[in-house]
Design a protein around this nucleic acid. Sequence first.
DNA 1: GTGAAAGCGCTAACAG
DNA 2: CTGTTAGCGCTTTCAC
Lengths: 353, 353
Amino acid sequence: MAVTIKDIAKRSGYSFATVSRALNDRYGIDPKTLKKIKAVAEEMGYRPNQIAKSLVSRKTKTIGLIVPDLANPFFSTLLFHIKSLADAADYSLLICMSAWDPAKEEHELKLLFERRCDGILLYPSDPIDAKALDLYKIPICVFTDQEDDRGQVFFVGIDNEYGGEIATQHLFDQGYKRPAFLGGNQHSASSIARCRGYENICNKQKVNLPEAFISTGAFTIDSGYDRARTLLAMEPDIRPDAFFCANDLIAMGAMEAVTLDGLRVGADIGIVGVDNVIYAGLPQIRLTTMDIPLAELAKRGWLELMDLLAENGDKKETSDEKKASSSEEKQANSLLEPTLVIRETTDKSRRKK
Amino acid sequence: MAVTIKDIAKRSGYSFATVSRALNDRYGIDPKTLKKIKAVAEEMGYRPNQIAKSLVSRKTKTIGLIVPDLANPFFSTLLFHIKSLADAADYSLLICMSAWDPAKEEHELKLLFERRCDGILLYPSDPIDAKALDLYKIPICVFTDQEDDRGQVFFVGIDNEYGGEIATQHLFDQGYKRPAFLGGNQHSASSIARCRGYENICNKQKVNLPEAFISTGAFTIDSGYDRARTLLAMEPDIRPDAFFCANDLIAMGAMEAVTLDGLRVGADIGIVGVDNVIYAGLPQIRLTTMDIPLAELAKRGWLELMDLLAENGDKKETSDEKKASSSEEKQANSLLEPTLVIRETTDKSRRKK
DNA sequence: GTGAAAGCGCTAACAG
DNA sequence: CTGTTAGCGCTTTCAC
């Protein structure tokens, strides 16, 4: 169908080995032949078959990316950053969506392995078992705040527990007394860590909150709305007076629930989200939220993966020391700190609703 | 490195041809051999090398998707829908970002071709030349409202001109007299079509607006903000009293500019966007906008592409008549109609700012 | 039923 | 400098 190296060999009168060399600028070729072969190739509209190349080179120049949910702006923004990095490094990106389902995640992992990706970037839908990951003989970099670090698998992540702490602390500082935590997906490591931070501060403040104040659910506006409504339906003296939400979507749902109940966001009920999506800063929203350094996270993950690839491809002897030294470095700075962006949804003196 | 068909042939005592047959459930194999081979494969953790399979089958079960900008929620939502469809059909997705640059777009096209994608889904950054696309010997489906239909290339799209018309008409109906058009990327076919719709209605209304009322720029909040500020800085009697924005991001930027100037969104300045992103409906925003049936668009494009693949793979003789008949059908319903979602940003009697 | 052999498009020694 | 010969891992005739 498509024109191959043999076609252009026939047409140019050279053997296909010479054609291959010429097209790949290997040295040891007569400038004239080179010119002629390139001309013929151009004329015939030749495009190398990367499938065939990959088969022999054992490299695909392809990275697989697995995220739980592409509809979530957090992940689509992460994807955007990673894609930009991939472009710059001349890698293609194969994307997969686990839909927060560990079984599907494993399936995608297998698939990426079968397609012989050079490496994998994984944002797990579940706390990850590093050993299991090691089975895939591919360099994998995992986005999470877990601390393990073995084999081919590396971790980079956000310090979500710390994030949960400063967010919750901020709520208390602002004068709210009974913050509730509207979590995300039940198994989401990020959500779990943020919850831990929330609990740390609640304990420190020595407040005792009902169990119902901690909930999990989808990372969506609707889920936030529903859960906030439920909590707000409690008696005024025992219901929450603030929501720490596992992401901005949930927070926006909560905001909606608050206003619908005739309460004022900020003045009556404080709200803080996580992610700092572009909409959070709009004058009509002004959501207090944790900013996650997504571009930086993407970059770290990408660089880490590239390191892994380099180690793998190169020597095997020297890699041990290199690895040791580089992972030490990593350990020191591998958790990125989110920062609190204070806006009006946690402002008790806020006028407009 | 990884275990191959030969390894399991050696271990099981069969020839690798038999192993291949067994693993792919070809018939004509002794049930016992089959069972044994599968057991050995399982035990050794065999995973077929899709690269090698692709080389012989000439199929990669991969679709390439090219969009201008993954950071734009419109495209990430489109991606989400397409990815869902791809999952269901057992295709992998290779994503590319053209960054609104026709040169990069062409480069990505070449790349996808070299990787021997089975088909390509293209959301062009520019009005497309169908003939040029025909050069790539791959089925391509293009998202646009252009009408051409030749060769391997098919088009599906949104009727953006019509969308521009009803949006602008709505503005006049609400009592605004001097709508401006805040366009998107200069070469964006969608933006251009929406502008045409806007102009159609302005002509019909026999209003004569300054040239400056039509602008192009990035599809971003900042761009909308900047351009709205500029226009709002004109003398009150000649400046626009409404903005029709090429997408919701631009519209949100415009809203920001309006409130910053002490004007009221709706009462003083009407605003309508396009896309109906999830945030547009929030109680704090309530943006009037054109809803684009994105899920439907993704589905149409995907199905169209699958059709193309089927035709291509199957016979070559019968395909001509099939093609003729199917493209007729397509022509009849290939442009999807956006619908206007009326909210408060075009409500002159709106109270709150 | 199963094995041997050819070949997908390309790269990489090894000879000339 | 260029041609010949092996494969990369797998599917697919074609024999036995």
